[in-house]
Computed example of a mutant assay.
Amino acid sequence: MHTIALFGGQDPQGLTAKLTHALLEACEGTHEFIDLNQLTLRPDRRGEANPALDALEQKLAAADVWVLASPTYFGTVAGTLKQALDCLRPRLTRMTHQGDTLPGKYKGKVYLTITSCFASGLENTFTHQTDACLTMLDKAMAAAGLRKAGELILPGTWNAHAIPETKIAQAQALAAKLPAKVRRDNETMKRYLLLFGMIAIMALATMGIQLLIPATTMNFWTRYASFVLIFFVLLAGILHYATFVRHKHR
């Protein structure tokens, strides 16, 4: 397995880069760390050679896992990494005649994201400072058809000089799971089991709530209507959590 990391922060010796190196060193097989600050990338232009972008794409094509690492700057991705993704966009995706963006030739590859912020873990949990950064990276990779293997968030970097051992352990645990992610071991079955478990728990919770409110079980139609309404509210809450509050801020 070959893992490649694209680092877009301003300091290749900083904490975000160090956490990225910690993950790479724990990965099975070979790995490469690319400091995008050392590259001069530009978009493709018709009739012009683009050797820098060609070389970067060749490295990405040879990798089984992509790691996208960037501190959170002004609530979003560092400009260097954003520029690289913008330049690569036509090579990662394909466009239909209607202008729809579809996954390109790297569909099915695996990626993970790493970011950091000055805010403490508790503060980031409530203010979601890293969400926009991670969401932007996820959106780009989803458009390219890549599968997410996980994410690492390093909060509290203000005046910090070392990575907490707990974060090193998280990086190592995530690296250990990557080979299975690349092989797609039991992913389909896991999704079905997760869906079944979620529905079973929601149905049980809905019936429990109905028992607490006798008026909802007076007859068949009130029982049916209340079940649908309560189930919908619970489902909406879970989907909201999965969409907006899924990142591990701490």
Results as ranks from 00 to 15, higher is better:
Met198Ala: 04
His31Leu: 01
Ile4Thr: 13
Leu204Ser: 08
Phe244Asp: 02
Ala225Arg: 14
Tyr73Arg: 08
Met189Gln: 14
His2Gly: 14
Tyr106Gly: 11
Leu193Ile: 05
Thr20Arg: 11
Ala22Asp: 15
Ala215Asn: 13
Phe220Ser: 15
Thr72Phe: 00
Phe126Met: 08
Gly208Glu: 11
Arg91Phe: 09
Gly197Leu: 05
Lys148Asp: 02
Ala144His: 01
Pro43Glu: 03
Asn159Trp: 04
Thr217Glu: 13
Arg42Leu: 05
Thr127Val: 13
Phe7Glu: 06
Thr72Ser: 01
Ala225Pro: 05
Leu81Pro: 01
Thr16His: 03
Ala215Met: 15
Pro179Asp: 09
Met207Glu: 14
Leu212Arg: 07
Glu151Tyr: 02
Arg147Trp: 06
Thr115Arg: 00
Gly108His: 05
Glu187Ile: 05
Ile213Thr: 06
Leu154Glu: 00
Cys117Gly: 09
Asp44Val: 02
Thr20Phe: 07
Val228Leu: 12
Thr125Tyr: 07
Tyr106Pro: 01
His161Lys: 05
Gly8Leu: 11
His249Glu: 06
Thr40Asp: 12
Asp44Met: 05
Arg183Asn: 09
Met198Glu: 14
Ala119Cys: 07
Leu235Ala: 10
Ile163Thr: 01
Thr166Arg: 08
Tyr111Leu: 14
Lys190Ala: 14
Glu25Tyr: 08
Val65Arg: 05
Thr20Lys: 09
Ile153Thr: 02
Asp11Trp: 11
Glu57Tyr: 11
Ala171Pro: 01
Ala17Ile: 03
Gly47Thr: 03
Asn186Ala: 13
Ala69His: 06
Leu122Asp: 08
His249Trp: 06
Ala5Val: 15
Leu92Gly: 07
Phe74Ile: 10
Gln10Lys: 11
Asp64Met: 10
Tyr224Ser: 11
His249Asn: 03
Ser120Asp: 03
Ala175His: 02
Gly75Tyr: 00
Leu212Glu: 13
Trp66Met: 02
Ala55Trp: 02
Leu81Ser: 02
Arg45Gly: 03
Phe231Ala: 06
Leu53Gln: 02
Gly47Met: 04
Thr125Ala: 11
Gly108Phe: 09
Ile34Glu: 02
Arg250Asp: 09
Gln129Tyr: 01
Leu102Ser: 08
Phe74Trp: 14
His247Trp: 06
Thr127Gln: 07
Thr115Ile: 02
Ala52Trp: 06
Leu56Ile: 04
Ala169Cys: 08
Asn186Cys: 08
Ala236Glu: 10
Ala22Cys: 15
Ala215Gln: 13
Ile168His: 09
Gly14Pro: 03
Asp35Ile: 04
Pro51Tyr: 02
Leu235Arg: 11
Ala26Val: 14
Gly99Tyr: 04
Gly156Gln: 00
Ala225His: 12
Leu204Lys: 11
Thr76Pro: 00
Thr96Asn: 07
